[in-house]
């Protein structure tokens, strides 16, 4: 089976899982994120009354189709990248079956792409940040994201050697520790952003930030589990030789076979 066909199949499945994830992220965001955005905008308008001009895009549109566009586009792109990273790591990093590989990758991606940059630069609802620092905040955020990715890549290299010398469990622990140390150093070295208007509700800030983590959790759970199921079926289909070694249906998945 030529690899072109396998990659294309995985890519399509990654983007399909991404599409589903984007719709679910919208539903989650609409239910659990938008109420806090509304409250934050109400606070913003109470401290600086809005201009009388009609907004370019109405609030109703921003919450519905606007948010949906954002989550779907973001999730399809994430799904495509996820599928290619899966294609590269499957059978190379660890020996787990496709579903387990994808679920692990989902967890790792959530930590590296979302959680660690978030610890340094957490999300903010409208009204919290200063307009004049947007350039600085954009640069620092993307640099932190990049440093987290570099730390993860370095940890992978460290882990490959460590697994050979110390075995799978201890080698993996060394890799995780390597990532934590490198990302921690990056986080300490990056400049802090401390912007908070007087009187902004800490409870609102906390709930909003939690909804950010929840929205990304929906994405990586859907990619990790949904794409994982699709990828496992696809690989068994195009690699009949491998199909005998792991089953794809949920009923037989737990049954021992060798």
């Amino acid at each position: 089976m030529d690899s072109q066909k396998i990659v294309r199949g995985l890519l399509i499945r990654g983007m399909l899982a991404g599409l589903a994830a984007g719709v679910l992220m919208w539903a989650f965001g609409y239910l659990f994120g938008e109420p806090h955005i509304r409250d934050a905008i109400a606070f913003e308008e109470s401290i600086s009354p809005p201009s009388n001009e009609a907004p370019l895009v109405s609030r109703t549109m921003q919450e519905s189709l606007g948010l949906l566009t954002g989550t779907v586009v973001y999730a399809i792109a994430a799904g495509g990248v996820f599928a290619l990273v899966f294609a590269a790591v499957f059978g190379r990093v660890g020996h787990a079956r496709p579903r387990v590989t994808a679920a692990t990758l989902g967890l790792v991606a959530f930590v590296v792409i979302v959680f660690v940059p978030f610890l340094k630069y957490p999300s903010n609802p409208p009204a919290v940040s200063l307009d004049e620092t947007i350039g600085f905040r954009t640069r620092t955020y993307f640099v932190m994201l990049l440093l987290s990715l570099v730390a993860a890549f370095a940890a992978l290299r460290i882990g490959r050697d460590a697994v050979k010398r110390l075995g799978t469990w201890n080698g993996t622990l060394v890799a995780v520790a390597g990532y934590v140390v490198l990302a921690g150093i990056a986080s300490v070295l990056m400049p802090a952003v401390k912007e908070m208007p007087e009187g902004f509700s800490p409870e609102l800030l906390y709930s909003f930030r939690l909804s950010t983590l929840g929205t990304h959790a929906v994405l990586y759970a859907t990619l990790g589990l949904g794409f994982g199921a699709l990828a496992e079926r696809w690989i068994s289909q195009v690699r009949p030789a491998a199909a005998g070694t792991y089953r794809t249906s949920s009923l037989s998945a737990g049954a021992p076979h060798s």
Binding site: T69, G70, Y121, S123, P125, T215
Partner: peptide
């Protein structure tokens, strides 16, 4: 403005 809420919710810097 069209993707504004997604930008905040996903954690990108905005306003």
């Amino acid at each position: 403005e069209w993707v504004h809420d997604a930008r905040h919710l996903l954690g990108f810097p905005c306003h």
